[in-house]
Amino acid sequence: MSVQYQAVQWNRQKRIYDFVLVGVVTLYLLAFGAATKVLFPFVTEEILLLRAFGTAAFLLLHVILCIGPLCRLNPKFLPLLYNRRHAGVTCFLLALVHAVLVVATYHAGGDINPILSIFVSSPLTHSVAGVPFQPFGFFALVILFLLAATSHDFWLANLTAPAWKALHMTVYFAYALLVLHVTFGTLAGETSWFYVAAMAVGLLTVLGLHLASAQKELSIDSELQNRAADEFVDACAVADIPENRARIVCISGERVAIFKYERKISAVSNVCQHQNGPLGEGKIVAGCITCPWHGYQYVPKTGASPPPFVEKVPTFNVRVKNGRVWIDPKPNPAGSRAEPGLIET
């Protein structure tokens, strides 16, 4: 997990993930390129390529954005999330090829600097044509670059998970910019209804899945949102927690994952230190809380990863009384031992 720096901590599932990722992208590029060349033999190669790479990047970004909410709605999608960062880097590389081709084709070889041309060669004219769609793409590419460049755990550890997470949430801003880029660019040039329909379906799918998963999250947060208190609070019934699993409750505005295992109850922060994954959707595996996103593990009663790993999450003091779980709303420092509550027989 986090013992020492490695470029990529390869394992079998990551290799399968990348094989599928490269396969899907390659097939898309080949199919688009071959079909375009056969149907429109006079198309110039640079435009064929920039269209192939641009559409591939935009489609892949849709898939990437849908993975998160799909996993919240159905954990069976979690294998798609496991190595999502490689999909993100692939998306950036596809977009970069598209951008390089665009600059070389449309902006280079003229009477001004090609990068400057991106911003001044689309003068505002108070009409649809005046909407500067290429700067939208430029700024989206800058964001995708930042996300790809900081996707490694090295940056996650140095920026801290909250800062890293906040940075990577800007992918939604990049997506919004790309929606504008495509709407005022491609859709203004290609008049087929199919492009408009595909764009609408993509946008509605991303929005719909996020709203559906947000609805699910809200139901967790609203359950205990008014139970903030200085003393132990009644969190849930022991019987509500499946064995080796957790129930997530919201106490004092913080999500707490309450695990049941080996006739004990332990509570830790719901936020994995790695990428802020939802520990409460994880499982006790080999005696450790295991994050559903990337398999990071924590000992339930200490909140610390087993040696040699060094991640720690805050723990919460727990009492079990009359079949109910009581939680102290004040978290213990990350990695602090908190005695598990014993389930009465």
Binding site: G23, A31, A35, F194
Partner: peptide, 18 residues
């Protein structure tokens, strides 16, 4: 895989500006 190939072919076929 199926969606990838299908979308690639569809996006290619409906181009009108070439």
């Amino acid at each position: 895989f199926v969606a990838s190939i299908s979308l690639a072919l569809a996006f290619a076929m409906v181009q009108r500006s070439i």
